[in-house]
Simulated assay, not measured.
Amino acid sequence: MRTHFDILTIPGGGVAKVDAHQDAADLIAVRLAKLEAVRERMRKVNTLVRNRNAKGLKRLGYADSKVARLLQPDSENRCAFHTDYKLRTNYQQIVALRRMARELESMDRIDVSIDQEDYLYREDASAQTISFRFTAKPDKALRALLRRAGFILRPSRNTYERTLDCTGIAAASQLRDHLNKRMH
């Protein structure tokens, strides 16, 4: 498991070490909101500059001199305010923060294990997976239902697994209801 310092090391600008991981989650959420707002603005400005839309740039608060400089084409007659690498780096930071937020969320989650007559259902927070293990090979209809719900057969573990997230939990809940109705 990572320490709080490892969790909060963010590419392109870290967040200070904190004592409680709830504080870490709050800091990550604030940093993520800022980066997403910056990304949205960068994309909007780039679109306006590429379309040479001076009125749109003025509405965003740019002065006439700055608008003229932004709309000045380079040697290849291109206009772009933010370079691709700035957009890419910003997006990579957002992805890293989202991953960190999921890891912090999984630290709060407890493992769930439901043992039924025909199957074992598990939610493993540390591995971020939901799994079904059946006592016998499921019939063709059930295997198709599992695939439609996003579960993938892991032959090495003899389980059907998918990522642990809210949509996975909802799909697993519907499958468990279906399986319980079949058993009774």
Rank of each mutant, 00 (worst) to 15 (best):
M1K: 14
M1L: 14
R2G: 03
T3A: 12
H4L: 15
H4I: 15
I7Q: 06
L8G: 00
P11K: 05
G12Q: 03
G14L: 00
V18F: 02
D19W: 09
A20I: 00
A25T: 11
A25G: 10
D26F: 11
L27G: 00
R31I: 06
V38K: 15
R39P: 00
R39E: 10
R41P: 05
R41I: 02
M42Y: 10
R43F: 09
V45W: 00
V45I: 07
N46Y: 09
T47S: 13
R50F: 07
A54N: 06
K55H: 01
K55M: 04
G56E: 03
R59A: 07
G61W: 05
Y62S: 06
Y62Q: 08
L70Y: 12
Q72D: 14
D74I: 01
S75N: 09
S75F: 10
N77T: 05
R78I: 06
R78N: 15
C79M: 15
A80C: 12
A80T: 10
F81M: 11
H82A: 14
H82W: 14
D84N: 12
K86N: 14
K86C: 04
L87K: 05
L87W: 05
Y91W: 05
Q92T: 06
Q93D: 03
V95M: 11
A96N: 13
R99S: 15
R99M: 02
L104E: 00
M107Y: 04
M107S: 02
M107C: 01
D108Y: 12
D111E: 09
V112A: 12
E117W: 03
E117G: 00
Y119G: 02
L120V: 10
Y121E: 01
Y121T: 03
E123L: 07
F132L: 05
R133P: 05
F134H: 01
K137E: 15
A144K: 12
A149Y: 00
A149L: 02
F151P: 00
F151M: 04
L153F: 14
R154P: 03
P155A: 06
S156F: 08
N158H: 08
R162E: 04
T163H: 13
T163F: 10
I169A: 08
I169V: 07
A172P: 06
N180Q: 07
N180E: 12
M183S: 14
